[in-house]
Amino acid sequence: MSIRRQIKIKQLNDDLYLWLTVTIAVLIFSEAVWPGLVSAYLNLSFWLLFWSVSAILKVVFVNK
């Protein structure tokens, strides 16, 4: 794989990780301030699991 392509993938990965982290932080804060605002419509546990898996993958594979 070319370096340019690798940089592009790394950038996309960083963007997705940033989006997931910011979103999950906002959702957890919103739920803490207003119980039911998020959990009525979204499964927060599922989102947290998704975020945890992506964090592990990022540390293990991408940052290498």
């Binding site: 963007d15 997705l16 940033l18 989006w19 910011v22 979103t23 906002v26 959702l27 919103s30 207003w34 039911g36 605002l37 998020v38 009525a40 419509y41 979204l42």
Partner: peptide, 16 residues
């Protein structure tokens, strides 16, 4: 992506 999240959050706020 972040704009989409903001719109989604506003929708949740409206629904709640």
């Amino acid at each position: 992506l972040l704009t989409a999240s903001l719109v989604g959050w506003l929708v949740l706020l409206y629904l709640a």
